[in-house]
Computed example of a mutant assay.
Amino acid sequence: MKILLIGREGQIAWELQRSLACLGDVVALDRRSPALPVDLADPDSLRKAANTVQPQVIVNAGAYTAVDLAEQEETLAFQINGTAPGVLAEAARTIGAALVHYSTDYVFPGDGLSPYTEDDLTGPSSVYGRSKLQGELAIAQTGCAHLILRTAWVYGGRGQNFLLTMLRLMRERDSLQIVDDQRGSPSWSRMLAESTALLLARCGNYERLVEASGIYHLTCGGETSWYGFAQAIRAEAIARGLLPPDCARLEPIPSSAYPRPARRPSYSALSNQKLAQAFDIRLPNWENALQLCLSDMATA
C-alpha cells in the first residue's frame, strides 16, 4: 500500500509516520517538503500531490487548530478545515484512493449529558468547529471512499498541547487555575495514530473501505474536566520524576473566570461504540493512556 500523509510535524502526523509504516510506503508531505510542497490553503498543491504520488490511501493529518485565533482568521480557517478536505476527497475519488480525515468534538454544541454518537445532531459554537464540520460535509458530498475520525483533547510529547503546557507551567509557577466545568476525553496522539493504522489494516482493501465509509468517533475512554486532567498530569509526572513534588498547586475555576474568544463546548465526550462494533477497536481509558505517555517521556 502507498499512503500519502498530509502533514509531518503535527502531533498526530508525526506519530502516523511510524504507525503507518507497517502498512507500506508512507510519503509524508507538508509546506516545507522541498520536492513536492503541500499547502492546505492551496488546492492546486493538494491535487498535484495526489496525482504525483498516486496513493491508495490519503491520510489528512493537517488542520487549522488555533481555536481562538480562528475567530479572527475565519477565511483561512475555512480554507484549511472546510475547503481542503473536499479537494482531497475529490482528488482521492479521481485516482481511486480512499481518504482518512480527522475531525473534532467541537462540531457538537456541548450541551449533552452523555457521550455524543455519530448520529447526534451537530451544532458547533465556534469558527473552528464550523470549519471542521464543513470539511466533513465536503468529503461526504464527493462520494469518495472515506473515514472521518472525530477525536478530542489531543495531547502528546511533541507540539503544542495541554499536557506540555501544564508540565511547563507547573515548573514555573506556584499555583495554577484550571477550568473545571468543561468535560471531554483526553486522547494520546500515539494511540490515535496506532488505531488509525489498525483500522486501515482491518479494512484490508478498497472495497471494504467503500463499505465502511462514514464518520467514526476515536478517543480514549472515559471523561474528565480540564482540572481533572491537570490533576492526573501532576500526580503521574511527579511519580515519574518529570516534576518536583512541590510543583504548582492546582485550583479549579469555572469557564466564566477564564474568558476566551472562542466558546468551548461544556460537554464533548464522544461515544466510541460504532468503532468498536465495526472494527473491534477500543482505545484504553484516558488515565491509562496518560500513564503510558508520561512513562514514554520519562524514559526518552
Rank of each mutant, 00 (worst) to 15 (best):
A235D: 05
G62H: 04
Q291T: 07
A28Q: 06
R32T: 07
Q17L: 02
L88A: 02
I215N: 03
P55T: 11
D39H: 15
I281L: 04
G24V: 10
Y64M: 07
L16D: 02
A140H: 13
Y106F: 10
Q56R: 15
V107F: 00
A28R: 08
T196F: 04
L169P: 04
E71C: 09
R31M: 08
Q277R: 14
Y155M: 07
N285L: 01
T151H: 00
A49C: 09
L192N: 09
R202H: 06
R150N: 01
G24Y: 11
Y216F: 13
G157I: 13
E73R: 15
C22D: 08
A41H: 05
W188D: 03
R234T: 08
R130S: 01
Q291H: 08
A89Q: 10
A289C: 05
G96D: 06
E194W: 15
A50L: 14
L20F: 03
L242V: 13
C220A: 03
I3H: 09
E223D: 05
G221P: 01
W14T: 01
E74R: 15
L167E: 03
C203W: 15
R47W: 14
I178H: 13
P43Y: 06
R171Y: 10
Q273V: 13
G241P: 12
G135S: 05
I215P: 02
P265Q: 04
G157E: 06
L121W: 13
G241L: 09
H146R: 07
E9A: 12
G62Q: 02
